Simulated assay, not measured.
Amino acid sequence: NLTEERNQLQTSYNNMTQEKNQLQAEIERLRGKITELTSQICPDGWTKFNSSCYFISSGSKNWDESRQDCLRRGADLVIINSREENSFLKNFGLRVWIGMSDLETEGEWKWVDGSSLSYTSWAKGQPDDAREGEDCGEVRPERDGWNDLFCTHNQQWVCEKKTCLGVEI
């Protein structure tokens, strides 16, 4: 009786192991499909990171012109919400406009969507409002952080648009 029960248990175990392996193979197939589909989410010339697409300009414009360019692309200047997103942007090694300013109220930095800065990564001594006119924000990798700068300065910028899928792999 015990031998028969042991054999039944062994058969059940073998069947479950086989089903588990089939499920793992299906999970891997679906992950591959998700990767394939998400790689098609961002337009040509844009880079996907987490649930957003990013466009890094090749030209230089002032902050307002940069923002207008993003808006024409169906996006806006990038809003940095996390250390990971900040690192992603810093890894490009470029000084770029980002979507924050204190244009409305001096010293009250806000993102282009009107939200307050819940995450910050100011470079040491920043923002300093040098010569009382630095009202727009940039990523400045060589200073290892964000910097305030005159909005009329021309430089590259980064646009961000959320993907329709919030899929993270």
Rank of each mutant, 00 (worst) to 15 (best):
K162P: 12
T105R: 13
E5F: 05
E26F: 01
T163P: 02
Y119W: 05
R73F: 06
N81A: 13
T38G: 05
A130V: 08
E142P: 01
I41R: 13
P127M: 01
N81L: 09
T38P: 02
C159L: 06
I169Q: 15
Q24E: 07
N14A: 15
K161S: 09
T47M: 12
W97P: 01
N21M: 08
K162A: 15
G74F: 06
I56Y: 13
N21L: 08
R143N: 06
N15Q: 14
A130D: 06
G137R: 00
E85M: 09
T105L: 13
F150L: 06
I56A: 07
W111Y: 11
D69E: 15
E84A: 13
G107L: 03
E26I: 00
S101T: 06
T47E: 15
S51W: 10
T35M: 12
S101W: 00
S87F: 06
G59D: 15
A25P: 00
K61D: 14
E28Q: 11
P141D: 04
R29C: 05
K162I: 09
W63Y: 13
S118P: 03
L165Q: 10
E134P: 01
P141G: 07
I41Y: 14
R143W: 05
K61F: 11
D128E: 10
S60V: 04
Q10E: 14
L71Q: 13
V78K: 00
W111K: 03
C164D: 11
